[in-house]
Amino acid sequence: MEIPHVVEVHPETGLANAKLGLWLFLASEVMLFGALFSSYILLRVAAVEWPAGSTILNVPMATFNTLVLIASSVTVVMSWASLKMNDFAKYKVYMGITIACAFIFLIVKYFEYTAKFDHGLSPASSTFLAIYFTITGLHAIHILGGIVVNGYLLGPGARMWKTDPEQFTGRVEAAGLYWHFVDLVWIFLFPVLYLL
């Protein structure tokens, strides 16, 4: 049994299944983070006082993390472009860098979190810290998910390049879209939580 439009695009939508599915998933993710941003605004508007993020959080660390994530966004799109140009070796390099960036991001995040805990700051301390830990925690889980998917595409999943390069390229593109979305969320999280 063959499922239609796994590789060849559908004549009406111009898309293959995976890409359409991924965009639908992203639409759902927009609503998830949208609801959390909405909660943030509501809590902030309601608060008697709201601390400036920079007085509590580590802005230089987060700035560094922002640059790391932006860099990984470039490398993941480069890895897809390498496949489009039939250069599998380059693909592996770029995908490897992407995953490394993701790990760097999480390690920096780990140090940020532990520094807060060492100062006795936790979600129970204030509504600001609570929303900070919740949204960045959920974002970190998304990064982890990205590491798993990209790691699969670099490791065991890469075998598909030999059997079905087009479907493999499609998968890398879909994983890339997800990864850009994770980057996109951080681009908004960073100023909202750290700078305002």
């Binding site: 898309l15 927009v30 949208g34 909405s38 509501l42």
Partner: peptide, 23 residues
């Protein structure tokens, strides 16, 4: 990008805006 993705994104932007109207 394909039209259907723009349509889908427009839809989620509308609902996103509704969600932001909660506050």
């Amino acid at each position: 990008e394909k039209k259907i993705i723009y349509a889908l994104l427009a839809l989620s932007v509308i609902f996103f805006a509704m969600c932001l109207s909660i506050p």
